[in-house]
């Protein structure tokens, strides 16, 4: 009895490496590495743990993006995934979260039967956390977001998860199939391994809009209900005053006098 686990992943620029050109106020993206989105790595790891545990589990990574997303799929396969699917088509370019979830849910329908879907909670380039729940909505699946602990019943018909809240957690039970969005507290993603890197039987599929049979009126920039009206960089706050003093005590006193005079303490 095969048990198919889907993982939704995204290739993102490493936002920690992005710098601003101070003259033009624009992003410097040259040389910024593209990475597997961190939360998605946790999603993949949890799927791979299931595969470690049960022989009949297969792990299938689904992504949407330009053909270069293949490098991320290679990484996922080298970690141990069985298959990668890239939805790539100009027609889906510029999609917002609503349109993206239309395209990915269409790809998942094309994929056919599945037993579980893991996704990262959010991607570090947009930080919206919307695509996972919106895919679940379009597939009419129950969802649990912010999953920090995962367990599955013996018959694999039900999962028990801890869902992180700001001040604690909820313990939730839900039947499979379901959509779970994962956070970094869930696990420690494994490294790529030799077996994965050199496995010749791995499969990468590239699907275009026609392949996934998606209604073109529901994907891409034009179909997206939200549009970017303007984009810009925040104005740097004016540089303040550097305090001077011979001793730490003098510096501390100078600071406190200034804060007191400003009536903030």
């Amino acid at each position: 009895m095969a048990f198919k686990v889907l993982v939704c992943a995204k290739q993102v620029p490493d936002t920690n490496e992005i710098k601003i050109n101070p003259e033009t106020g624009t992003l410097i993206r040259d040389g910024v590495p593209s990475i597997l989105n961190p939360d998605d790595a946790n999603a993949l790891e949890e799927a791979l743990k299931l595969k470690d545990k049960y022989e009949d589990v297969t792990v299938h990574v689904v992504t949407m993006g330009p053909p270069q997303a293949e490098t991320m799929i290679f990484e996922c396969l080298a970690m141990g995934a069985d298959e990668g699917i890239i939805v790539s088509d100009r027609a889906v370019g510029g999609s917002d979260t609503w349109a993206t979830s239309n395209a990915i849910s269409a790809a998942i329908k094309k994929f056919g039967d599945y037993d579980m879907i893991f996704a990262g909670r959010q991607a570090i380039d947009g930080d919206t956390a919307q695509v996972g729940p919106q895919i679940a909505e379009k597939l009419n699946l129950p969802q649990v977001t912010y999953v920090e602990e995962f367990d599955i019943s013996e018959d694999r018909k039900e999962v028990t998860v801890k869902r992180q809240l700001e001040d604690g957690y909820e313990l939730i039970k839900v039947a499979t199939p379901c959509m779970l969005t994962c956070i970094k507290e869930l696990n420690q993603p494994r490294y790529m391994n030799m077996k994965g890197i050199f496995n010749k039987n791995k499969d990468i599929k590239i699907w275009n809009a026609a392949d996934i049979e998606v209604d073109l009126a529901t994907v891409g920039l034009k179909a997206s209900p939200t549009n970017v009206y303007k984009s810009f960089t925040p104005k740097p706050k004016g540089k303040g005053m550097m305090l001077a003093g011979d001793t730490e005590k003098e510096l501390a006193q100078d600071l406190l006098i200034r804060l007191k005079k400003k009536h903030v303490i």
Partner: peptide, 13 residues
């Protein structure tokens, strides 16, 4: 904010 706060965008619907 987007891109880790490097960029800001105004979105309309």
């Amino acid at each position: 904010p987007a891109f880790g706060g490097n960029l800001m965008a105004t979105i309309i619907c």
